[in-house]
């Protein structure tokens, strides 16, 4: 007769196997939706600042500062739950996240850090006038573009 210990170990390893199998076929759609929603929030706030920078919306110091501070908050969010292993393009549906995100985690976090620096600078100048936004938009564009150049798959 199987000892209790042996049965316990077997059932544990069975559980481990089931967990592993679950992880391999995990549904990452929630994380993918979260990071894409996060990107949309960048777009919404950049849209306010960009419209002012391009002269499509009258300058409003308070609105500009609010949008810029939202960008700082967004760039500062801990994104660890957005990027589970196996949620790259080619592994999961509906994402353009490049495998390089996981292969080069230092480079990816440096790119995120550069975005936070650019957003913080924007928040400092957005309330000072249209020129303050224009300079900030160029830095934001550089930070967004640098990440999209290296970590996002073509359409």
């Amino acid at each position: 007769m199987m000892s209790i210990t042996k049965a316990f170990v077997l059932s544990l390893s069975g559980l481990a196997f089931a967990t592993l199998a679950h992880a391999q076929s995990a549904d990452h759609s929630g994380a993918i939706k979260a990071r894409q929603a996060h990107m949309t929030l960048y777009g919404t706030n950049l849209g306010v600042l960009g419209a002012m920078a391009q002269g499509n919306m009258p300058y409003d110091a308070e609105a500009a500062t609010a949008a810029a501070e939202s960008l700082v908050a967004l760039a500062g969010i801990d994104e660890r739950f957005y990027w589970p292993e196996g949620s790259a393009s080619g592994m999961a549906e509906g994402t353009r996240a490049m495998e390089a995100i996981w292969a080069d985690p230092e480079g990816f976090s440096a790119a995120q850090e550069a975005l936070l620096v650019a957003a913080t600078a924007m928040a400092a100048t957005a309330g000072t006038g249209v020129e303050g936004i224009q300079a900030g938009m160029q830095a934001m564009g550089g930070a967004c573009g640098a990440c999209h150049q290296n970590y996002r798959v073509r359409q």
């Binding site: 960048y42 849209g47 960009g50 564009g141 550089g142 967004c144 573009g145 999209h148 996002r152």
Partner: peptide, 15 residues
């Protein structure tokens, strides 16, 4: 600026 009308940005070689 590299910004699209939706304030996405250029990626890949277009940067």
């Amino acid at each position: 600026s590299g910004f699209t009308p939706e304030f996405d940005t250029a990626g890949g070689e277009m940067v």
